[in-house]
């Protein structure tokens, strides 16, 4: 989805449609919560719509130990509460602080924007994009939306900052933003960078097979050498005494 912040008038229809689609209590909310999968927050005169970014290389998907989160070809990052063990690593790791936890439940799950996966499967746009009266949120293929965003920036270079947020951020996200002011001023984390977060972990995890193989051989080798050494020492000692050598084994 492409979200053009210059077009958003703050009518909150998107949140209403989202709540209706997901059968959530209809009260207006300013922040993401268990009952608000999307929310508008105001920075000066701008309304910023936040929701799950549906990253191309999602951090939450990579950290989940039981693969309760998954990224589908169509874009949505889906969650399966039946698999979830409740380790809350996704809450800890999500660079956008998106997943919300049912803390008060004894069988808690996370809640977040589902990208209206059932609607997408039927060929419909997400509820929020369909409801948006000003075209601030439009739905489409990511490549086409990127072209459209670039076209808007080049058509009106004074209106926009020359950046499409989400194009490369944390490796690219399904949600793309256009803004008239630098994104850092709108509460977007400027420190995230372009490398997908899971790569940070992979640099360590990819060494696991090496540690196992090289470490195993090395430890085995050290055991053999030190064992041999004590065998030889035992043998030499017994030679002096004229006894038969005995193998030393662990007690």
């Amino acid at each position: 989805m492409l979200i053009d912040l210059t077009l958003c008038v703050g009518c909150n229809v998107c949140q209403g449609a989202c709540k209706e689609e997901n059968q959530l209590p209809p009260s207006e909310e300013k922040y993401l919560s268990l009952t608000a999968y999307t929310a508008l927050s105001k920075y000066n005169d701008l309304y910023i719509r936040r929701m799950c970014q549906h990253c191309d290389v999602p951090t939450c998907v990579s950290v989940c130990p039981v693969a309760a989160l998954s990224k589908s070809e169509a874009g949505p990052v889906a969650y399966d509460g039946e698999k979830c063990i409740g380790c809350r690593y996704c809450l800890q790791a999500c660079p956008y602080h998106v997943p919300k936890y049912e803390w008060s439940s004894t069988k808690p799950r996370i809640q977040k924007c589902k990208f209206c996966a059932p609607r997408l499967a039927k060929g419909l746009p997400p509820a929020c994009a369909e409801a948006c009266p000003t075209g601030a949120t439009i739905f489409g293929e990511r490549d086409e939306l990127l072209l459209e965003a670039a076209r808007r920036i080049s058509a009106e270079p004074t209106k926009y900052v020359p950046r499409i947020y989400g194009k490369d951020d944390v490796g690219g996200t399904s949600m793309l933003y256009l803004s008239p002011v630098p994104f850092e001023q709108l509460g977007f984390d400027a420190r995230l960078g372009k490398i997908p977060m899971p790569m940070l972990t992979m640099s360590a995890l990819s060494k696991v097979p090496n540690v196992l193989s090289v470490g195993g051989v090395m430890l085995g080798g050290i055991w053999w050498i030190t064992n041999r050494r004590s065998e030889v020492a035992a043998f030499e000692a017994s030679e002096k005494k004229g006894e038969t050598p005995e193998h030393e084994d662990k007690p």
Binding site: V61, S62, V63, C64, P65, V66, A67, A68, K83, C84, I85, G86, C87, R88, Y89, Y101, K107, P108, P198, T201, M202, A204, L205, V208
Partner: peptide, 26 residues
């Protein structure tokens, strides 16, 4: 005690995610 779903503690045995440090630790 810390897991939100202690009754699901055995899930890492059968549901794997090799990209997860948490999975490796389990």
């Amino acid at each position: 005690l810390d897991l939100g779903r202690p009754d699901h503690f055995w899930h890492p045995l059968v549901m794997w995610n090799p990209h997860s440090v948490m999975c490796e630790i389990s």
